[in-house]
């Protein structure tokens, strides 16, 4: 049985670190894991995705249309952009966070209204305010690890030794902060 997790957001939001921690944990738990990311030009404020797949034996590193068990979006509009990759039986965790793209900043388009409500009408949706919680923890940058916490809880992966994974993969001075962020994220789902 292969499970697929789709993490999406905007270049610079830290999806890459979140997926790195996630895949490392899955590997150490004994799963076969594959993960796909596209780097390059999209990093400059573009739409980004990390596709994580795990199970006994994983063939493709990419998630197909209608293939994700969970869609975790670091930004509201990105959840809408990637929704077709979710299984009809899948669920969404969405960060209540808005990043205006250049056409919106330039006044050519309006940021779409009511995304969170429409998502909730279509699929089981958990809305989290990771920015608020990250700021309360003292560093807006840990939004990504809070969202990682929501994935772990949503996918029932709590038994993996996340503390060790985090200590092994982040700078010692940020370890405690990230552990707190992970706990906050897990409590939100």
């Amino acid at each position: 049985m292969v499970k697929s997790i789709l993490l999406v957001g905007v270049g610079g939001q830290g999806t890459i670190l979140a997926s790195k921690l996630l895949t490392t944990g899955l590997m150490e738990a004994g799963y076969d894991v594959k993960m796909s990311e596209i780097h390059g030009m999209s990093q400059r404020g573009g739409s980004v995705s990390s596709q994580v797949r795990y199970g006994d034996k994983v063939e493709a590193p990419v998630i197909e249309v209608g293939g994700a068990d969970i869609l975790v979006s670091f930004e509201k509009m990105e959840a809408w952009r990637w929704l077709k990759y979710l299984k009809p039986t899948g669920k969404v965790v969405v960060n209540d966070y808005q990043i205006n793209s250049m056409p919106i900043l330039a006044g050519k388009f309006d940021y779409p209204d009511g995304i969170l409500e429409e998502l909730a009408n279509k699929v089981p949706t958990t809305v989290v305010n990771a920015a608020k919680h990250a700021t309360e923890l003292g560093n807006p940058k840990v939004m990504n690890v809070i969202l990682l916490g929501t994935i772990i809880k949503s996918m029932g992966l709590e038994t993996i030794h996340w503390e060790k994974i985090i200590r092994d993969n982040v700078k010692p001075k940020f370890a405690e902060l990230n552990l707190k962020a992970l706990a906050v994220g897990m409590s939100l789902v």
Partner: peptide, 18 residues
């Protein structure tokens, strides 16, 4: 393709690199 959720994807504004 595999079945997926039916929704109006046109609401999404492009996010080109800048």
């Amino acid at each position: 393709e595999n079945p997926s959720i039916d929704y109006d994807a046109d609401k999404v504004v492009p996010r080109p690199p800048t």
